[in-house]
Structures are given as C-alpha cells and as structure tokens.
Write a protein that binds this DNA or RNA. Sequence first.
DNA 1: TTGTAGGCGTTATCAC
DNA 2: GTGATAACGCCTACAA
Lengths: 358, 358
Amino acid sequence: MQASSAVEIMPPVTRRTTITDVARAARVSIQTVSAVFHDKPGISDPTRQRVRRAIERLHYVPNGLASSLRARHSRTVGVLIPSITNPYFPDFVRGIEDGAHRAGYSVFLCNSDHQPEKEIEYLQLLRQHAVSGYVVAYNLNNLDFEKILFQLATHHTPVITLGSRQIHERAHVLRTDDRASAFTLAQHLIELGHERIGLIQPPAESSVCRDRTEGFRAALKKFGLTVRPEYLVPGGFTIEDGQDGATQLAGRQEPPTAIVAANDLAAIGAISALKGLGIRVPERMSIAGFDDIRMAALVDPPLTTIAQPTYRMGQAAFEAILEQLESPNSRGRVINFETSLVVRRSTAPPASQRSIES
Amino acid sequence: MQASSAVEIMPPVTRRTTITDVARAARVSIQTVSAVFHDKPGISDPTRQRVRRAIERLHYVPNGLASSLRARHSRTVGVLIPSITNPYFPDFVRGIEDGAHRAGYSVFLCNSDHQPEKEIEYLQLLRQHAVSGYVVAYNLNNLDFEKILFQLATHHTPVITLGSRQIHERAHVLRTDDRASAFTLAQHLIELGHERIGLIQPPAESSVCRDRTEGFRAALKKFGLTVRPEYLVPGGFTIEDGQDGATQLAGRQEPPTAIVAANDLAAIGAISALKGLGIRVPERMSIAGFDDIRMAALVDPPLTTIAQPTYRMGQAAFEAILEQLESPNSRGRVINFETSLVVRRSTAPPASQRSIES
DNA sequence: TTGTAGGCGTTATCAC
DNA sequence: GTGATAACGCCTACAA
C-alpha cells in the first residue's frame, strides 16, 4: 500500500514463485495448478500428483493480494483499540484472533491511544487494506470517525463496536451493562457500611464514563447517600490515573472510606498510591475496580472487581463479522454480556464500622 | 485470501469507489486522479481542485491490494508471537506497531502459543498476505518452521527473530544476554546470603531456557555453591507454571530459600502459591523474575527482576525491517539490548542470615 | 496535460 | 483435461 509520507523502498530482489512457475515446472496450464491447489474435481490423478510435487518443491503459496483483488474479499479484519498495552485488550484481541484464525482470516492490529487523528488515520489504512470487517473501540467524541465508520456499515461492511452508544442500523455493538455493574459495585460498598464513597471516573471520551458514573450515582441515591461532587474525580484507565485519583481523594478534608476506580488498572494504581501515603487497603480505605484482569487476583490485596467475559467478547466480535458477511442485509444489534461481582479482599467494612462492631 | 477450510462468503453488496469512479466524477482520466492523489507535479490547479473535491466527495481511498500487487510491496509486517496475553508482548508489539505506523505500514498479529503446527500455518498465512517483513518469536524446536523462515530470509525478505540462537546470513536477531542476566540475578541472591536457590526454568522450547539455566548454574558454581538437581524444575512463562514450580520447590525435603522464576509472570504465580502455603515472601523465601513488566512494581511484595527495554526492542525490530528493505543484500546481525537488575522487596537475606545478624 | 497500452498474479468462463 | 480471454484496481511509460 502507499502512504505519501513514507520513504521510498526497494522491492525484494528475488521474485516469489507464482502459479505460472508451478505450471511451467509441472508442464501444465496455470488453471490446472489452481484447480489442484483448491482441490477441485476434474484432474487426473497422475497430473494431480505431478502438480502437487511441483507446488511442494517450489514452496508455492498463492499470492493472496491477487486472490483478494479478484475475489473482492481479503479475509482480513481490522482491530482498532486504544492500546494493546492496556491489559484489558490482549484477551479481547486474542478472542478475535483465535476466531479469525479458525476461519482462515488474519488480524490487523491498530493502537490509537484514543487520539482522534490516529483513529481516523488507522481507519483509512484499514480501508486501504480492504479489510473484510472492523472491530473498533473508539473515542466517543470522535464524530468524524464515527461518520466514516457508519458509512462503511451502511455500505454493508461488517462493523462491530465495543460499547458505542450510538446505534447504527447495521453495526453490531458489544456491550456490558456498565450502569448496572457500577450500581452493583457501589451497592456492595454501601452494604459493607461505607457512606463516603469516591469515584475515579473513566476517561470522558470513553464509552463507559457516563454509564458507570450514572450507575454509581443511582446506587448512592437509592440507599439514601448524597453524591458529593468532591468525591467524583475525573480519571482514566491507567495506573497513573488511579494514583492521581486516589491521591486527590485521600487529600480531601474528609476523605472517602472507599473508592470505585475506573478499572482494575486504575484500582491497582490507587492501591499503590495509598500505600505510599501510608493508608492501608482495605483497613483504612476500600478499593474496587472493573474488568477482572488476570492481575486483579494477584495483587495485594486482591481486588474486588466486576468480571466480564473479555475473551468471549472477542470471539463474539469475530463471529458477528462472519455473520454479517454471510447476510449483508441483516440488521445491527446489541450483543449483551453478563458481568459479575467478584469480591476479594480489597473491600471491607469501613474502620468506623469495625470499631463499632468489635 | 483463501483457506480451503473456510466457509464460503458473499462479498459486500456495494462496490467501493475506485479510481475510475473518481475519474468519471471529475471528468478526467484515471491517471490524472492518481497523479493528484500522490501529489505529483504536472496537473493544473483547477483540475487538481476538481479532482480533490471528487476524491473527498466519494471518500475515495485507493485499493491497497491492487497497489501492492502492482508495486510488489504490501507495506505490512507480520508479527508472530506465542501470545499477546503474555504481558511481555504487548509492549513489544506496541513498539513494532508504532514504528510501522509512522512509516505507513500495518501489522498482522499472530498468536502461536508456541505450537509448531500453528507457527507454520501462520507463516504460510503471512506469506499469502505478502507481508514485507517478519518479526517472529518461535519455538526453537520447530525446525521446519525455521527452515521456511530462513528460506524467506535467503530470498531477501526481511526476517527479525526474537532471541533465536541459530544465526542466519541475513536474518537479524534481537537479543538480550540471558546468560548474564541469570548470572546477575543468582549472584544478587547469593550476595544476600542465600545458599539454597531454586530455579523455575523457562519452557524448554523457548529461546531462553538454556541461557538462563546456564547463567544460573555458572553463578552458583563461581560462588562455590553446588547445583542441586532437585532445585531445577522445568517450568514455563505463565502464572500457573510459577505456581506449580513454587509448590514443587516448597515441597522439597530441604526447600530452597530463594527462587529464580522463568519470568515475572511465573514469579508472581510463585508468590501467590507461596502465600497460599503460608510461606511469606521475602521473609521465608525470596523470589525474583525476568522482564520487569508493569505489574512487577505493583504486586506485593514488588518484584526483584531483570529489566529489558521491551518497547525499544519492538521499535528496533521494525527499524531493522526497513533497513533490510532498503538494502536487501545487507548481512544479518545480532542486535543486543542491555538489561539491568532491578532490586525490589521480593528478595531479602534468608531467614537464617537475618537471625544471625539480629 | 491527457489518453492508450500493458502488466502485477489470480481466478472464472468459455470453447476445444 | 487444456488453452485463450477477461477481469479485479492500480500504476508507469509512452505517445498524442
């Protein structure tokens, strides 16, 4: 493919072996080679053998670019995520990739860091590669991106989004109920006896920020607690975001006794920051996260969190692409996934409570 | 691309816009469109504007498959790793991908789980896609794979391997000195006063098993300790491998007082298993790992480990590919990366030592 | 400046 | 069974 910005490059020196080479070697026509390669009927056994040997000997592999060009179908999917270094995504991508591999598809991986320009660049790049389908987790404020994406969907290209709120007539959406999850988590803390609960919010441009904040608020309200604005700090999905958020919350005049973090990574960051401040978790402050990444069970204290079937969501994403390829006129739909509360040691009754009890 | 196993699929219903469509819309020839698109000189300003508008309006993006076919150059790289869910690899892949993106390249991601058949399948798939270069971390026992890979290299296709021991005339190798790293780690433990040190080995088929084991042995020998076979347990790079290994070692009649794990993940697994057995780290047993993944600093106790510049190694891998594309006759070379010992709280003097001292 | 011609490698459709 | 022909979309060269 070309990109005007890129350096000019020499092609490899030797030609790869083409179907013509094989045909010549086996002294048959190229369409015979093609037929043998694709196990089509109508070729005599001796010829078949001869061709097979030639294929073997010359290590012939058909040029997929040519095949795809002709077939108008590339057998590739584009996966656009914020960053593969966010431990939530490897499982998801692995799910996609495993499904893709079984169906003979390959995966293009793109990391956007949620930057609008990068998202659009990558989308164009994937379009250039004529990918058969798109799986994207994108910045919700990137309306230009969404416009292009939905145009693709309108033109019957399979598009799967991770948790986008905008519903498109054709694009599928993978979704977990973030509102309910946040509600559950807050409820868990309230039931433990916490009354001052902080929230380190997801990044405002992510798909989950509003839902989790809403669910959180709703739980407090339902159980008669007031939502104190100074307990809601804007945050993000990184360890640093968690450290910052926890540091801020711990510095409040009357600090919360529990914190719901944007995700497990932020929760882990929060714990490490609190340790640095000499605040013990969960004795002095409870911490909870979202995602149940592998590490959640292994940090100290192990994290209370909301588990979601990340790998299966990846698989489902690829399956949805196949499905849309098979019936291009099917309607987009929301695919919901169950989440569950996993209680571990990072949450406990607040100190006040325990002193009362003991 | 085709894979005989895969389902038959209908192509999307609507055609994408081609250069011909744009030419028609702007009432010029297709090569004028091409020239405008690639900012070539010799087009009058009004025409240029008109074409630009048509490109804009029709959302034209050149079909990269056709371009690549013609240019004999796909601007893609294949990345074949055991699994992106191993937290060592996201940083590495990110390094590759960032470099690739800057140069207008895209990345195919393949997870082999170190399974020889999968490795070969993926290699063929990448060949189909006519990737411009390969970055591979493969199972060293997979000689068939290596043969195909080195044939590619011989034919001037850029090949970068992660720590393969086999040196090929053209393939570059990214390497850290695993022998020295293991030596350093063992030395660190010995200097703390440990005399009974266990090793949870990397998987036998990985590139690092022999080197790390050798370095480990060499250190013990140099400092006059005997290498007890019951302290060397075969392991792997997962949390479970670490749990198993630590459980085994802890069950020895005379358990070691320190363990060097295959990597950080195994070390984290070891710590969790030991916690489960009521063995405190580092008080009763010291643990050390390799890689210095993000989590290493955040688990409890924070891990002593060997840091390596994973992201930069990924960047270097892509740069090496570009370099080989530019000068296809250049010789393969080994690119070495520095590692460093990071001492954290998971290693401490053995209990005996401390009781003597105090 | 623009049109015409040829080819990248593969596959499909004929008629032989 | 095979050979000829066309097409996928793009690009380069050469001629008009």
